[in-house]
Design a protein around this nucleic acid. Structure first.
Length: 423
RNA sequence: GGAGAGAUGGCAGAGUGGUCGAAUGCGGCGGUCUUGAAAACCGUUGUACCGCGAGGUACCGGGGGUUCGAAUCCCUCUCUCUCCGCCA
């Protein structure tokens, strides 16, 4: 969430920039400022009374100690009223604070200046592309290829779990594992430290990265223990740094993680979400960085560059989009999406999303740093990106590399798969 | 799942109703000494909020209560450890 200081000091700027996200913040900001001011004055009152109470209590203690019991009892009588006022004001204070927080979490992150105006996907701006779109005739879509070569079984998944939970089999499973290992190895080579996090997180973690309180419905909730299945490794990995004060010299922190990801995603199930295009459970390798505010945008560029090397090595046609205000997420300040071209579906598939959250998550996480020798703490910046999400990569690889003989495996993956063609 | 013990500052660990934001040790930082380092010695060392400032307030796992006053007493939740059971 945004800091109160920022909102108070740059109110008009916040309203203006949130318009790019198509969010009218005028009212909510007025309310936040009103509540914050109320909070401050109530707090001042409470603290004055508490100070009074503290000194009175000390006096009573002294009186008892010196045996002046009567005096002490007299003084005691005075505290009752004070106590009541403190209690009353204290209740008001916590009520105001709760209301303030409720408003604050509803305010999205302000977008960076680079974020273009726009309503939705169609207004995203292509910033770069590469690779070659293969020319295939009668290309078979991946949902048919996986049946033909017996790589993934959706019906079996439906039988044991439900729709959107595929079962990978034989070379399909092996290819999946190859991609995971390839992505992890590449990330480690690029300086990211690998972590293998829990796939289930608590409420605090969900709040820290911004999934809770509002996007509850998108996660699977283990109600018996009040835990959530992670929608992305971003959640557990970023939360490793919750309530942490770093030294400036420790940044940037670079972590990567493979995880299964779980999404309830109550969307439609038409042609565009067929096969591997949208699943309830899928695999992903995520890269996460905690960076100094002064260079977090350079870090973002590096992360984008890293993802680019992946799609290039996989020989997939790719393009990078800068998300417009209407398509960028609630918590992000700037996001680049990677898409790869899927030759049989004849459309671009999103396979990565790389974002700078600036201090928006850090403020929720209480993730701070100190400059060398400085006493005051400042909020760090957090970033993350998919590197990469597997299912659509798999879809594109299968569709783009289909030949008369079978499905050709890109060279970089052969050491991982142990085969160079699926027949 | 059953029984017991516990949760205090970066770490270890004292404190069982007032003078305790909290002893002491270690670690960190600064200094003295030294050509430099080590050792020794001296000093310093939590976070947040309010306030221009002086200063004030809160925090001893979380929440609630008792009391003029709570790290300390009571209730409750969470977590950790030990033993037993079960188990990949």
């Amino acid at each position: 969430m945004l800091t109160l200081k920022f909102i108070q000091e740059q109110k008009d700027e916040v309203i203006k920039r949130l318009k790019v996200k198509r969010f009218d913040a005028t009212e909510i900001i007025e309310e936040i400022i009103r509540l914050d001011n109320e909070r401050k004055s109530t707090q001042a009152q409470v603290e004055t009374l508490q100070a009074e109470m503290n000194s009175l209590s000390k006096e009573i203690g002294q009186l008892f100690k010196s045996g002046q019991v009567e005096e002490a009892n007299k003084a005691k009588a005075k505290t009752g009223e004070l106590k009541d006022s403190i209690k009353e004001l204290d209740n008001k204070l916590s009520e105001t604070t709760t209301q303030l927080n409720n408003q604050l979490v509803q305010l999205p992150n302000v977008p960076n200046e680079l974020v273009p105006e726009g309503k939705g996907e169609e207004d995203n701006v292509e910033v770069k592309n590469g690779g070659k779109i293969p020319e295939l005739h009668n290309a078979v879509p991946h949902w048919d290829l996986i049946k033909q070569y017996d790589l993934i079984d959706f019906e079996l998944g439906t039988k044991i779990t439900g729709a959107g939970f595929p079962v990978y089999k034989g070379k399909g499973a092996r290819l999946q594992r190859a991609l995971i290992n390839f992505f992890l190895d590449e990330a480690v080579k690029a300086g990211y430290m690998e972590v293998l996090p829990p796939l289930v997180v608590n409420e605090d973690s969900g709040f820290g990265t911004g999934q809770l309180p509002d996007k509850e419905g998108q996660m699977y909730h283990v109600t018996a223990d009040n835990l959530y299945l992670i929608p992305t490794a971003e959640v557990p990995v970023t939360n490793l740094y919750r309530d942490v004060i770093l030294k400036a010299s420790e940044m940037p922190i670079k972590n990567c993680a493979y995880s299964a990801c779980f999404r309830r995603e109550a969307g439609s199930w038409g042609a565009h979400v067929r096969g591997l295009n949208r699943l309830h459970q899928f695999d992903k390798v995520e890269i996460v960085q905690v960076a100094h505010p002064s260079n977090s945008y350079e870090v973002l560029e590096q992360m984008v560059a890293h993802v680019q090397t992946l799609v290039e090595k996989l020989e997939l046609p790719w393009r990078i989009l800068r998300l417009c205000g209407g398509d960028i997420s609630f918590t992000s300040a700037l996001t680049y999406d990677f898409e790869v071209y899927s030759a049989a579906q004849e459309r671009w598939l999103e396979v990565s999303s790389v974002s700078n959250f600036e201090s928006y998550q850090a403020n929720r996480l209480k993730l701070r740093y100190k400059e060398d020798g400085e006493k005051k703490t400042q909020l760090a910046h957090t970033l993350n990106g998919s590197a990469l999400a597997l299912p659509r990569i798999m879809a594109a690889l299968l569709e783009n590399n289909q030949t008369e003989e079978g499905i050709r495996i890109p060279e970089v993956l052969v050491p991982y798969t142990g085969f160079d063609i699926i027949k």
